[in-house]
């Protein structure tokens, strides 16, 4: 892209991208901490994650307000307009991923400090892949990297496969011992949150593609 003649607008667009990156980093951190706290049944971290979700929500509203202000005051066109439209969507997706971290915090409080019904293997792996995808997507967003935006969603299949594995394991445990139904359900919810988080990274990639090409496209989640 050429150099923007409106330097203050150029600066504001950069700030918008940086703020989106910051929101993404807050969300990544929250998701990682939530699964780590689940593994350790760390009630204190769980309570902090629930409360800190407000900070994520506030950041998202600030980004939304900045987008609306830029639309109203700068009348952005073409790629600039698409970038701002994409930031509106991406910040919403990130905020929802933040909600999943908060949800896992609540699940931890429901489970309580007692031992988990099974050692956590697949759920941390799901978290690892989902947060890795998220980091790559944020990088692709800053670099406007079309190739990466197409490649990242392919990893959603790995997360889905792990979710199906967790699902099968937990159902087998319920069948074996129906009294475990509540505690297996909690873990299933946590896994489901991570599976949805990866789906939302895919949505973010769709928005990056829109920013670069102007084309709306949807990855086939099946």
């Amino acid at each position: 892209m050429g150099q923007l003649l409106r330097t203050s607008f150029a600066r504001e667009l950069e700030t918008l991208q940086t703020d989106t990156l910051m929101l993404g980093s807050m969300v990544t951190q929250a998701l990682r901490e939530s699964v780590d706290a689940l593994r350790r049944r760390d009630m204190e971290t769980a309570r902090r994650l629930i409360s800190e979700d407000q900070v994520i929500n506030k950041k998202r509203f600030e980004i939304e307000a900045d987008c609306l202000r830029l639309i109203a005051t700068q009348q952005p066109m073409a790629r600039d307009l698409r970038l701002i439209a994409a930031v509106l969507e991406i910040s919403t997706e990130l905020e929802r991923i933040g909600d999943y971290a908060k949800g896992i915090g609540r699940i931890i409080l429901l489970i309580g400090p007692e031992a988990l019904i099974k050692p956590l293997v697949d759920i941390p792996r799901m978290c690892e892949i989902a947060t890795d995808m998220l980091n790559q997507a944020l990088d692709a967003f800053i670099k406007q990297d079309l190739e990466a935006a197409h490649a990242i969603p392919l990893r959603d299949d790995e997360v889905d496969a792990l979710y199906n594995q967790v699902h099968r394991d937990l159902i087998a445990m319920i069948l074996e011992d129906p009294t475990l139904i509540d505690r297996t359900n909690y873990l299933l919810w946590a896994a489901h949150n991570l599976e949805r988080a990866a789906d939302r990274v895919t949505n973010i990639c769709e928005r990056i593609i829109f920013t670069v090409t102007g084309e709306f496209m949807e990855f086939d989640m099946n």
Partner: peptide
């Protein structure tokens, strides 16, 4: 033209860029 122009020079002009 205003959301996704086909030509780079159109894009540069409507977004206020040069180069």
């Amino acid at each position: 033209v205003f959301t996704n122009p086909g030509q780079k020079s159109t894009e540069d002009y409507i977004t206020g860029r040069f180069g």
